[in-house]
């Protein structure tokens, strides 16, 4: 029995791995071609403001150095084979290996995204549960109204609003950035970092609750109308016990899956939020790389975000397989009752 399930899971992971490889290849090729055919001039990106001081010969030398004078397909193969050895190239604007920049920025973003992910998941779930249990009352209407309003609120607008209220007017929190300005890196404390994290994390969570809350509300309403809840009531269960025994497990499962599957929205939200708060995460790096034409960094970020979203979806699938007994345990055991004669 166990072995059978293990085998199924292995096959599942293998198939997912294959899918991820083909997806990554396609994404790499497409983004490479897109960037090559875009008006971005990588040499200008490298030279920056000193463009006027650079003569045509120097320009050619630089082009040769970066390999941009070769045919596009050759360039792609060069880049691709370097990629396979784990070399993402060097960022033109930071003049450092792309992998280092992504690693460093990712840690910052991860703190932001994880706190927002957990916060929005728990608050959204609780809101959905309350709305469904009190369906049709004023509290349900407020929660629904809040979620629908949020669903149509742009993230950057929400970020600006929060920044203005809590950082500018109330001065409760620092005004953007990841660490205090003018403090040496070794003097930055954990408290400083957390202080800088709170507003962006709240912005990202506030926007993130709508989806989970509305989904949980609908799901719990369905569960409460189900035959098995009716039967539980017929057996004398009610209120919190009823929710705990039959509601929670039937609602939490899809909510967890949904929350993992929302990694792409989380990443998209982080890009905008980090921009508003000048928070030095992946999102901000993406915007800069795009605006300033840093091709290696941009490609590295595209690959990384693809993996990130893919992993989110994989976790969503896995959570379902591991948590739902209908997926986890085999089909029915069919045997005839033994009748003692």
């Amino acid at each position: 029995m166990r072995k059978y399930i293990g085998g199924k899971l292995g096959l599942f992971l293998l198939l997912k791995g294959l899918r991820m490889a083909t997806l990554l290849f396609a994404i790499c090729l497409i983004s490479f071609l897109l960037i090559k055919n875009s008006p971005i001039d990588p040499i200008q990106a490298y030279i920056g403001a000193d463009m006027l001081k650079v003569g045509p010969e120097q320009r050619e030398k630089i082009a040769e150095y970066w390999g941009v004078d070769q045919p596009v397909m050759v360039q792609f193969l060069n880049w691709g084979s370097a990629l396979l050895t784990g070399d993402l190239g060097t960022s033109m604007i930071f003049r450092r290996p792309v992998i280092d920049i992504i690693g460093e920025r990712f840690l910052n973003s991860l703190a932001l995204m994880i706190s927002a992910w957990v916060l929005s998941g728990m608050i959204g779930f609780a809101m959905g549960v309350v709305a469904a249990m009190k369906k049709g009352t004023w509290i349900d209407r407020i929660i629904k109204w809040y979620c629908f309003t949020l669903a149509s609120t742009p993230t950057f607008w929400m970020g600006l609003l929060i920044l203005i209220v809590f950082a500018v007017w109330l001065k409760w929190f620092p005004f953007g950035m990841g660490v205090p300005a003018g403090v040496l890196a070794e003097n930055v404390t954990m408290v400083d970092r957390i202080n800088h994290l709170i507003l962006p994390a709240i912005t990202l969570s506030i926007v993130g609750v709508a989806n989970v809350a509305l989904h949980t509300r609908q799901k719990l309403i369905d569960v409460l109308a189900s035959d098995y809840v009716l039967f539980a009531r017929a057996r004398g269960e009610q209120g919190f016990v009823l929710f705990w025994r039959h509601g929670l497990r039937n609602v939490a499962l899809p909510a967890i899956t949904l929350q993992f599957a929302a990694f792409s929205e989380l990443f998209g939200g982080a890009v905008l939020t980090e921009q508003v708060f000048s928070y030095p995460g992946l999102g901000q790096a993406t915007v800069e790389a795009g605006l300033r034409g840093d091709v290696p960094l941009l490609l590295g970020l595209v690959i990384f975000s693809t993996i990130f979203v893919f992993v989110g979806n994989l976790l969503a699938d896995l959570s379902y397989r591991l948590l739902d007994p209908r997926m986890r345990e085999g089909r029915r055991y069919d045997f005839k009752p033994q009748i003692k004669k």
């Binding site: 189900s226 035959d227 098995y228 009716l230 039967f231 539980a232 009531r233 017929a234 057996r235 004398g236 269960e237 009610q238 025994r245 039959h246 497990r249 039937n250 499962l253 739902d324 007994p325 209908r326």
Partner: peptide, 23 residues
Amino acid sequence: QTVLRGKEIALVPQSVNFLDPLM
């Protein structure tokens, strides 16, 4: 009814869908 059901009055429901699928 709230007090008595399950305790003094019990139901055998008509369909097997009345079992909680995740319990």
